[in-house]
Amino acid sequence: MSNTDLDHLIEMMAKLPGLGPRSARRAVLHMIKKRALLMTPLSDTLQKVAATARECITCGNIGTTDLCDICESPKRANSEICVVEDVADLWAMERSQMFKGRYHVLGGTLSALDAIGPDELRIPKLVDRVTSEGISEVILALNATIDGQTTAHYIAGELEQRGVKVTSLAQGVPIGGELDYLDDGTISAALKARKVM
C-alpha cells in the first residue's frame, strides 16, 4: 500500500460525518494495526452493503430488500405512521423503542429558498398511504426548525379532511433541535407527550 493509497483512505474517511482529518488518521491507523479483525471484515461488509442497500418502496427507510423490516412486520401494522425528515431520524426514533407503528420518510423538508415543494418530497405518497392503509393517526416527528414546522403544518392541512388524527412531538424537543442528536429519553418523553396539530 503506497502512501498515496493511505492518504486517499484518510481523505475518504475524513468525509464521514463526525470525522475530521485527525480522527480519520487515528481510525485508519487503528484499522491497519487490527487489519484481520477490523479492516478486512469492514471492507467486505462495505462491498456487500454497497451492492444490496436500497430504499424501502413503502416508507423510504434503508434496507437490503424492497420492503424494510419495519414495513414487513405484522406487529407494526397498528394504524399509526410516524413521519420523519430522513432515515437518521427514523433510526433515532427506533433507538427509543417507544414507537410500535410504521414510518414515512419525507426525504427533506419544504423550502421555498431551495425550491423544494411537496412533489419533491414524499408527501403525496404519505397522503396515499393514509388512505390506502387505513391510518388513524399520523405523528409528525419533524425537526423543530422553521422548515420542519412549515412542513408539519402543510402536512396537517393536507390530512385535515381525511379523518385522521394528526399529532406532533411535544416537550423535550428544543427549537432548532434535530432528532438524530437527541438522547433516547428525550425522544421517549416527546413521543409520549405528543399533541394534536
Rank of each mutant, 00 (worst) to 15 (best):
5 D>H: 15
9 L>N: 06
11 E>Q: 15
14 A>Y: 11
17 P>N: 11
18 G>R: 15
22 R>E: 12
26 R>M: 06
30 H>E: 12
35 R>A: 14
36 A>C: 09
39 M>K: 02
40 T>R: 14
41 P>C: 04
43 S>W: 13
45 T>G: 04
48 K>I: 04
50 A>P: 00
53 A>R: 11
54 R>H: 03
54 R>T: 11
57 I>D: 07
59 C>P: 02
59 C>V: 02
63 G>L: 03
64 T>L: 06
66 D>M: 04
68 C>K: 01
68 C>H: 01
70 I>W: 07
70 I>K: 00
73 S>Q: 07
74 P>D: 09
77 A>N: 10
77 A>I: 03
79 S>Q: 09
80 E>L: 07
85 E>V: 02
85 E>Y: 02
86 D>L: 05
88 A>C: 13
88 A>W: 01
92 A>Y: 05
93 M>Y: 00
94 E>C: 10
96 S>M: 08
99 F>S: 02
99 F>P: 01
99 F>C: 03
100 K>R: 10
102 R>N: 08
102 R>H: 01
107 G>R: 02
108 G>P: 09
112 A>L: 12
113 L>Q: 12
117 G>S: 13
117 G>V: 10
118 P>A: 12
119 D>K: 07
123 I>Y: 00
124 P>D: 00
125 K>Q: 12
126 L>T: 00
132 S>N: 15
139 I>T: 05
140 L>A: 03
142 L>A: 00
142 L>G: 01
142 L>C: 05
146 I>L: 12
150 T>C: 06
151 T>G: 04
152 A>P: 01
154 Y>M: 11
155 I>W: 01
156 A>C: 12
159 L>P: 02
164 V>W: 01
164 V>R: 02
166 V>C: 08
171 Q>F: 08
176 G>I: 11
177 G>T: 07
181 Y>G: 10
184 D>A: 12
185 G>R: 14
185 G>Q: 13
186 T>N: 11
190 A>Q: 03
192 K>N: 08
195 K>C: 10
195 K>L: 09
